[in-house]
Design a protein around this nucleic acid. Sequence first.
DNA 1: GAGATGCTTCGGTTACGATCGAAGTATGAA
DNA 2: TTCATACTTCGATCGTAACCGAAGCATCTC
Lengths: 241, 241
Amino acid sequence: MKEGPDIAQIGSLIGDPARANMLTALMGGRALTATELAAAAGVTLQTASAHLAKLEAGGLLAQRKQGRHRYFTLADDRVGKLLEGIMGFAASRGHLRHRPGPKEPALRKARICYDHLAGDYGVRMLDSLIEAGSISVVGEGLSLTAHGEKQLGSIGIDVSGLRSNRRPLCRSCLDWSERRAHLAGSLGKALLSNFFEKGWARRTENSRSIFFTPEGERRFLTLFPLELGDGNPQLELDEKL
Amino acid sequence: MKEGPDIAQIGSLIGDPARANMLTALMGGRALTATELAAAAGVTLQTASAHLAKLEAGGLLAQRKQGRHRYFTLADDRVGKLLEGIMGFAASRGHLRHRPGPKEPALRKARICYDHLAGDYGVRMLDSLIEAGSISVVGEGLSLTAHGEKQLGSIGIDVSGLRSNRRPLCRSCLDWSERRAHLAGSLGKALLSNFFEKGWARRTENSRSIFFTPEGERRFLTLFPLELGDGNPQLELDEKL
DNA sequence: GAGATGCTTCGGTTACGATCGAAGTATGAA
DNA sequence: TTCATACTTCGATCGTAACCGAAGCATCTC
């Protein structure tokens, strides 16, 4: 018997295809019922029930009962972060499942990553904030500048409110589809909520992709402009790591 | 079939107890032979051989042949970082294997975490550097200050040389035994190498624990002092995340 | 060249965990 | 109260992957 953390325990929970599908579905940020998760996993309710029990016992999921419905979410941000890390690593080693179709470009363009914007638009948003001097990069850390606080305050982001909670304001999250970073943390979450509230964007049914309305898209691209061509503020991912 | 990174693939590679033992052994930072890894995993050579082939095909390990010996290492820093993340998460959920005995306190005191110092001494080193103003904390990022560059330069750390390579200089790494952060990145590695070169510390056989000589310990504690009691520069881990 | 050592491959065995049909429990609607 | 729906539990089945003995290959030593 070895000592220390039992990584096999965590690995085997994530390593079953049905459970992995459930976890991926929950990365969409919504609470899902057992029936929905069974469908997402492609197994019967009985099988799903057993898997959900294991994931909950292992500390990856939390359950909330509402009448006869059982709603499941990722247990906390740490699980989201863990799964993001494994997704980024899997992508870097070429372990990708691929289903060509209309959804794939949509997922690459804009999707939710647990609670923040990922995809091309998520990467662009971070790049633009860095380029504008609103976010500064320190090692692997991101920090909102005074300028950035003002800029985002002007679109209705309560930055001081966000600072008062314990969660990190800005966090870099590896974007597996763009192989570069997008913005996670409480600021990332607040920005995406802001876009939903303004009606610029909305979730799509049964998918992690995010749909921007034409007007929302226009406003988003105006708010987060990027200079054309080189001069992109991020180093390529595999150089940065 | 779902789209995106195949987290089940990575999860199942890590999820087998024998493979997990091998990966954990390799977190010691040394290249190990197939025979050594079989022993670490508690399986026969044939079983170990099959497992090593899978880990290599999956992108987690790299192999180097030397005569009839096959030496294995983690494929790169990303694998180390991934495993660190899983270890930290497993510890936070209580998934710990426990073998009471003389080695456990030694592992808690000082051990190697792939290529840098972990354990109580690793946490203390980072805390002290922050307290002294040698490292500043920005969000989740760590940055070496001018003062820090001077301080570490005085003990023989070539900081500008380290800055010139692509790897991040300072990186926060969750310490599963202390539940707080220690210093990873190229600076973390350089510091540990420095202690080895000075003879302050050395590896122990068949263990990830690190032994400090009495003189080395005295010098280490002098170089990285900590104020007594509260006022510790790091927030408690689960508050910070 | 023969023997030893490190490791891989082959083929067979077995245990275990995922799976689901059937039955049961809890909750909500008519 | 009865029926419907969401979900859990039980028990049986089956596939798969880990396991290892035996054989084979590559390299090193005497």
